[in-house]
Structure formats: structure tokens, C-alpha cells
Amino acid sequence: MSAPAMPAKVAALTPVKFEQFGLRHYLICLKGIVVRECLRFLHQRERFISSLVRPLVWLFIFAAGFRQVLGVSIIPPYKTYVLYEVYITPGLCGMILLFSGMQSSLSMVYDREMGNMRTLLVSPFPRWFLLISKMLAGVAVSIAQVYAFLIVAWFWGVKAPPLGYLTVLPALFLSGMMLCALGMLLSSMIKQLENFAGIMNFVIFPGYFASPALYPLWRIQEASPLLYKICLANPFTYAVELIRFAFYGQVEWLSLGVVAGCTLLFLAAAIIAYDPSRGLMTRKQDTGGNA
């Protein structure tokens, strides 16, 4: 079928020549996505407060109660006995990253339902770049929350070595990337916002409790060998250990390998899931339209 006749006065305007995208354009796009995520976070004060209150409740109440019940022996990276509050702090950092990663997954499902996600996905930049930018934005917000928590914990008397606040940053970043990538993958599988409750029950809680976030793995092994194996198969276990060792300027290589590997795996799966020609998104009835 041939194109209808074009008005003579606009003939000179088309086709338009576009400048090729260079590094500068990619950085503008990345900055825009990160700024938007930060603005959204700042506008949702309740989200910030709840993200801070959750680990603080564990630190102030749960840890205080369990300090007397649960003894922590000397295990690496600790060289002396440590207070239970000190032991669970890396786990609570992981908890913030876990909830934040799932929160960003929730916001992607919400954005998809509300239509905001479309504005991102119709950008001319490659889909993989857009998704990684979105992840980086989510991780930036997560890390800000972790440091806000660490500041409050510091005033509560839970202190890491001063340099640890710096050396933990790469571990927080990598763990945050893994959890955001997982959240992104999950968001591609969830059809409706209502189904997100399942994520709480099947991902967040099992992921958190079946890990060394609250108690050392040797104690879990003593209590239940099966649960111990489940903990070893849980990527969050390695994220917590990576963070724990990083606070003391050490690298736990197995954890680093598992977290890096899982990040790549989840990210690749999320990119495929959001690919219009191969992914899950195409197979779903879209929302916001009639047909």
C-alpha cells in the first residue's frame, strides 16, 4: 500500500537527520533516571521513614531482647566476642537492600499498571541500558537508606571500624544490584499489583530468615541440617556475609563470586523478560488500553 500524498510545504522537513547517541547522551539519560528515582523517594516521606524504622525496630527492640538469649561465638571476621547488635547490623543493612530491591520491583509493577513504565520503555536508548539505569537508580536510593540507618546505629553505640563505612560501600553496591536485578525479574513475572503480596511471603521473608542475617550459620546447622542447606542455597546469605566482611575491610571471596554471579544471572534474565520480542511482557494482556 503506498503512502498518501504528502503536502508540499512539509516535504523539506522529512526525514529528519538525528545526531548519533554518544556517551554524553547516555549519561544524560542515566542521570535523568537516577534523579527521578531520588525525587520520587524524597516525595514519598512515608517510604523513607518506614525503610528506616524497620531495621531500627530490629536493632532497638529485637536485638536488645535477644542479646541475653543468643550468644555469638568468635567467628570470622570478628576477632573478639561482639554484641548481638553488632552481629545483626550487616544483616539489617542487607534487609534494607532486600526490601528496597523488592520496593523497586513493586514500583515497576505499579508503573506498568499506571502506564509510567511505558515512558521509560519507549525511550530510543537500548532496553538493557534503560533497565540497568533503573537498577542503578534503585541501588543509589537503597545505599542512601543504609547509610541513614548506619548513622542512627552509630548514635545507638553500634559502631563499625571507621574505615569500614567506606569499605562496605562496594559490597552494598553489588548486593544492592543483585537484589534490584532479582526485583526487576520478579516484576516482569507479576501481572498485577495485588499479586505482589506473594513476593512478601515467598521471597522477602524466606530470603531474610533463611540467612545468617539474624543468627550465625553454625547455629542453624546445629538446629537443622536441612535449613542449613537451604541457607547455603540462598543468594541473600552471601550478600549478608559479603557486607559483614566488608565492614572489616575483608573480602569473602565465595560470597563475592556468588553475589556477582547471581547479579549477572538475574540481570540477564530480567533483560530477556523485558525484551519485547522474547520476553514475558509481550505475552501479557497490557493494561491501560482496550485491546
Binding site: 547517541f21 554524553r24 544524560i28 539519560c29 542521570k31 535523568g32 534523579v35 527521578r36 525511550s123
Partner: peptide, 11 residues
């Protein structure tokens, strides 16, 4: 601004 950045337009 967000949309502009998604098309590589900034500042």
C-alpha cells in the same frame, strides 16, 4: 525533564 533525559536531552 525526565522525559527529555530519556531522549538524551539535558541542561
Amino acid at each position: 525533564s525526565y522525559h527529555a533525559s530519556l531522549h538524551g536531552i539535558g541542561g
